[in-house]
Amino acid sequence: MKNKSLISINDFTKEEYFRVLDLAEEFQKNPNQQLLSDYVIASLFFEPSTRTRLSFETAIQRLGGKVIGFSEASSSSVSKGESLKDTILTVSRYADLIIMRHSIEGSARYASEVSNKPIINAGDGSNQHPTQCLLDLYSIRKSQGTLENLNLFLVGDLKYGRTVHSLLMAMSEFNPVFNFVSPPTLRMPQEYKDYLDEKGIKYYEHHQLDDNLKHADIVYMTRVQRERFSDPMEYEKVKNAYVLNNKMLDNTKENLRIMHPLPRVNEIDTDVDTNPKAYYFEQAENGVYARMALMCLILGVVK
């Protein structure tokens, strides 16, 4: 995995993912190790994303590495009209590894062609966000003890949500059953359903989030955003239809865990937060360990 870029979830093999997850587990037990004290890592956020940036930067700090970079394009040379190519060519001469987030799709793939240092894609528009998928896999395996044969509910915006699409692709390797819960206008796109059909994976579609949760092992909640609706009336109708509350968790399985990529708006009622089945803040914490593991493997400080 040394010097390999991670741009899209398909760039790594199943074995490579397991290697990252296993190492993340070790970091969780012992998070402060000076493995990256000789490394400078660039954190280039052309588009702001506080949560992802803090997670990566925490991972670097815990490993004793040094961070350079910017948290938005306006505080960088990009605002003076510098091309992405020139920014990457320059920074790749300063840093040992580049983490980048950009609103333009395919930007991270392009950067990996231009750069002589590995790139980690921290989100390129609506395209890919592979470290989110990595931490989701880590969280599922940690909370369930396995990735195999699980019943997953994906809830909310299933049409535009890149997180749920990546998760669907990744989990399809492990014989899951999917349940899709979304407003009719934000259903799982046909291409993903075709993919599941090809692989012989069962899935069910629902338009209501209610008492059908009793078989769920994982409920993965996402935000239904106002800007996805051309008709504001349509949004008003559905905005409260996909809100999970504590009452709905009665009679659900003991091992059920509620996940969410965060930030949450109102799709999970705060009364769920103290329920032992709530897992979203732990999930965010897991992201730090997964990113620590990924960076160490790419930089080759751990084999």
């Binding site: 091309s83 992405l84 190519k85 609103s103 333009i104 799709e105 395919g106 930007s107 793939r109 392009y110 528009g125 609506s126």
Partner: peptide
């Protein structure tokens, strides 16, 4: 076809 694609923003 994607207007947000890097190939429509930079000389790629």
């Amino acid at each position: 076809i994607n207007p947000k694609c890097i190939t429509n923003h930079e000389k790629v």
